[in-house]
Design a protein around this nucleic acid. Structure first.
Lengths: 223, 223, 223, 223
DNA sequence: GATGAATGAGAGTTCATTCAT
DNA sequence: AATGAATGAACTCTCATTCAT
């Protein structure tokens, strides 16, 4: 199981260099299972409340085996996060290059599609968003910085789209691209957080629509 | 010390029912000091890495004394959060009632003022935002729900402003008030997160301005 | 219990600054009991085979309590060694100052007395010698150096006696005092090691007598 | 590598029954390499801090292979000790039979030669002495007894020389041969221990000379 | 015969909590 | 009311040993 609905987006795990020998393949498989099971446990009880023994027991392996694959408890959560982030980023980047767009209308379509993808990823397995947005940063200071890094990366990604729009003339020429990208991402975060409380597709659609309304037209009545 | 710059906004602590006897007053005082010191420790090393003994030692009291004021470790962090949330909410609510506004121009002024207040509160003591937005939700499932509750409350607060604007006609009549409120709050969260990485006033001002630009006019060039 | 027969020699523990409060006294008492019980355990099963839990259980305290008194397992063995060394040194130093001797005859008497004292100390509780001479150095590199330091100190002590004898003229004027002291101490070590295998008083007396014979007259027939 | 300087004394390893087949010879070779590498590791980090994996890795073999050659960790250290002891004993016994001596002058020469040999063996590779004298006995009770056995054997060896001297009349007729032998060996131990701290040839020569002075003439001025 | 993946007993250590003083 | 000594559950992590490949 695990966040399997996400898998269809060709996450990073399927693109890894295929190992040669059968033993090596088995090893990679177990390594992957440990990461997934660890995520299951962390998502269920939280990082601090999860013991290595919990992960091992749930997987049916000895807990000493865990340490053959990961240095320590901190190491595994790092890999879990890396995995999740790569999955999300891969899903978002696929077929959504800024350059594929050349008009406002196309941009609206693209942003709607990105919204849908996010909805499928994060709606498909709410634990992913919950863990990345709400729990990860509380693990320790280093992880907090990683989460902030993640936001930073996302801001640059979004800024790319805005920049493209400014260049092509369908977005305001004097846009503060960087700050605006952050603001837009903030709305996306809000949508994701909302979906954690109200996971239904209606609420999601309404958020998506509200964000696009604000984003393109603003809320103010025109003079 | 502590998040003292926030204090000037008449946080909840000064509005509590004043106790009578001198002993009672002393007790309340220590209780307050424990909450503040606990926040200091949590902000510095994180909730899980902080021991009750750390708090007690830093305050110069026996760690048995702690348990005369709070049930357990979980209890104190609940109080710390309550305190922080009330402080922030109080600061935002003060003199910023939705009803005080009757035109778009006034609303612009008011939202700029709210932005300034947020800047002072969260810029004055970055630990407050860091703890509320990044660490609190990772403590356990219950706390995570509290944080989501907090976002919910904030959404309703913002929705109040929007509703007022729609009623008075300076905001779009067909605005999905609830969802839009969440989206706008998302931008505010983004601004706060940005300030954690780049605490300078410039970045803050740019975010504030970008948010208002998006909010009122959107990013799209008018037809 | 513990190496109690040694106690009569006024080991270091009775000369410590007496604490004031009753609680403080209790604490010092427990601290001492832990040291003694740790020695019991180490002597019985060896340092590495002894767990903190063993010490605590035998003493009837929780094993968490141990860590209120000593930093870690390494810390306690350091204190055990310090205790043993101080006890032995104190016993040897008592009433046996080099200056108290002014002739070969007196020196013979004094060295016999020192031999007796050693016999009582180490014969009284063979575990002391066994631990100091045979097991301690195997704990780790640092402890090994401490043991070598101990030998060094003992050499200097013995050298003091020889130097006095040379000055007073009853020992060879051209004696290599330092090396000879080490050699003599080696014989004492041999005596102690012998007593570990053959603890009877006869073997001890024979060693003592053989050492003095070698020491004063050598083994060679005079020309 | 390893305590190779010792090898020239025709240690026990070259006198073993030569195996027949090539495969068998290879096996014996690896067995020997494991013993030597184990000693390298034990000498470097101590017995308890050394893992089977350390030995195997350093040798470039799988650590499962280790168990094809030795029963367990305890087994290998037993072999290491046996090896070291045999090497030392062989070196001492070679060309130094008690019967080869027939006068005090010759005995002096022989004992000086034995001292030299010891110096070469133990000075050549200080790890041998350090491990035998300081660390081995701390491994466990059984090994401690083996070390004491070793001292016992050495005492009997030395006693043989003394006995010979008494019989031939150049040593005191009433010598307590057994105890005196132990005492003399104690001085040798002291010399070896000294060389561990001060490995220079000077200190060694001084100890050697001091021991012979004490041994033959004693320290006391003649009446 | 060689390997190294798997194992789990067991180690040291921490810390929230209790309660006698 | 304040204290801090005592506690033991629970944790992370190591490593000697086994055994299927």
């Amino acid at each position: 199981m695990s966040f399997s609905s996400v898998r269809q987006y060709a996450g990073p795990m399927t693109t890894e260099t295929t190992p040669v020998s059968r033993a090596e393949r088995k090893k990679q498989e177990l390594r992957r299972e440990i990461i997934e099971t660890a995520f299951d446990c962390f998502a269920e009880r939280g990082y601090h409340a999860t013991g290595i023994a919990d992960i091992a027991t749930r997987l049916g392996i000895g807990h000493g085996t865990f340490y053959r694959y990961f240095q320590n408890k901190r190491d595994i959560v790092d890999h879990v996060i890396t995995d999740l982030v790569e999955t999300v980023v891969a899903a978002l980047a696929a077929e959504n290059a800024p350059e594929a767009v050349s008009s406002l209308a196309e941009y609206r379509v693209q942003s709607a599609r990105i919204g849908d993808v996010l909805g499928v990823i994060l709606g498909g397995d709410p634990r992913v968003a919950r863990f990345l947005l709400l729990e990860a940063a509380g693990i320790d200071a280093e992880m907090r910085e990683r989460v902030l890094d993640f936001y930073e990366t996302a801001a640059q990604l979004t800024a790319g789209y805005l920049h493209h729009g400014v260049n092509l003339g369908y977005l305001h020429a004097d846009l503060d691209v960087d700050s605006t990208a952050r603001a837009i991402n903030g709305m996306i975060i809000a949508a994701v957080l909302t979906s954690l409380r109200d996971p239904g597709p209606d609420a999601q659609a309404r958020m998506s629509s509200a964000i696009r309304r604000v984003m393109y037209d603003g809320i103010a009545v025109r003079a």
